[in-house]
């Protein structure tokens, strides 16, 4: 032991852990006990508490439950006023995306998932389904019109819809709307029967795993957010940490979600980018704690270590006492 200790010390200039004396310790037994304990705990917790599985919202369930919100959202996708339509990268060039100071990372990486909301969410799904002549005519009329004309139609219909409290059935017909009400009424019908869920997903082909289009359409409406808000999952409710019902959530995201609650993050147009920037810096700092003056000294200042190693320090004091009491020419050694 001592030979090995000597050579290792000479190389590392660090105390060999075993030079402090050693005792039997069965690592494999410890691991086995730990594994059995964790398994038992897991089986027990799962049996007692189960796990949450709240049904997803479908375009169909949304359109059936809230046809007004669906119609308003579809109109916003058509006239380009929805959140997705004005999002910017990576979906379109309608905006520059968020910045951290002068750093426009989103814009630099560009439009990688192009989405044309009018085409992808409204005109495409209408055009790909077999339609009655009225709808076909309306679709041709809309697609053949100038964008100025389209804006006049959708603008007039939008105003009328707002006046009617968002209920499309209460909007009296008017030539000012052009083909807009016919198109939106048909899209609502397709949505309520569930075919829009399929149409949005299948735009890329037969096999499909990318839910970007249906998810963005849902998120542009207000029902998804309303349900989340009701369940305390919104960003301004520390929602990232939370889970539906009374289940624990991702509590480890506490710091991430914390920034969204305070100034300047909670009122900045670049909140997401700023929070991400902040968390990247803090994560780097966490990884590099051993190199950060001050932070790396906290363990010496907070005497938790004295609790952890209290037996070691007690032994040390005991030996110090023996050494000062004993003959001076016999140095006390520990465990050798």
């Amino acid at each position: 032991m001592s030979m090995r200790t000597m050579t290792r010390r000479a190389r590392t200039a660090e105390p060999d852990p075993y030079s402090y004396g050693s005792r039997h310790y069965d690592l494999v037994k410890e691991f086995t006990i730990a594994l059995v304990a964790v398994l038992a705990l897991t089986f027990a917790l799962a049996a007692v508490f189960s796990s949450p599985d709240e049904k997803p919202m479908t375009i169909a369930s949304w359109a059936k439950a809230d046809p007004g919100d669906f119609t308003a959202t579809a109109l916003a996708e058509l006239d380009g006023s929805s959140a997705t339509a004005g999002y910017g990268p990576p979906y379109n060039a309608a905006a520059d995306g968020q910045k951290i100071g002068p750093l426009a990372l989103a814009k630099a990486l560009g439009v990688t998932h192009p989405i044309d909301t009018a085409q992808d969410f409204v005109l495409g799904p209408l055009g790909s389904a077999p339609q009655v002549p009225d709808v076909e005519t309306a679709l041709k009329q809309y697609q053949g019109a100038s964008s100025d004309q389209q804006t006049k139609w959708t603008g007039a219909y939008s105003d009328a819809l707002t006046k009617a409290g968002g209920d499309p059935t209460k909007v009296a017909a008017s030539p000012d709307f052009g083909p807009t009400p016919v198109l939106l009424a048909q899209l609502l019908k397709q949505a309520q029967t569930g075919s829009l869920d399929g149409a949005l997903l299948s735009e890329g082909g037969f096999y499909q795993t990318d839910y970007t289009l249906p998810l963005l359409f849902l998120a542009d409406g207000s029902d998804l957010a309303a349900q989340a808000d009701n369940e305390h999952l919104s960003g301004d409710q520390w929602g990232m940490m939370n889970e539906t019902g009374n289940f624990p959530g991702q509590a480890w995201l506490w710091l991430y979600t914390f920034w969204y609650q305070i100034s300047p993050y909670n009122h900045s147009d670049n909140a997401d980018a700023l929070v991400w920037g902040t968390m990247m810096v803090l994560t780097l700092a966490f990884v590099l704690v051993p190199f950060i003056p001050g932070v790396r000294s906290i363990p010496r200042l907070v005497p938790v270590y004295r609790l952890i190693w209290r037996e070691h320090y007690r032994d040390q004091r005991e030996q110090e006492r023996l050494r000062t009491a004993g003959p001076p020419d016999i140095p006390a050694t520990d465990g050798e």
Binding site: P90, A106, A108, L109, T209, T212, D272, A273, G277, M280
Partner: peptide, 15 residues
């Protein structure tokens, strides 16, 4: 998306 990661890591792509 705000920091450009969304350009290649799409959280709405289930697959």
């Amino acid at each position: 998306n705000a920091v450009g990661i969304g350009a290649f890591f799409n959280v709405t792509d289930f697959g």
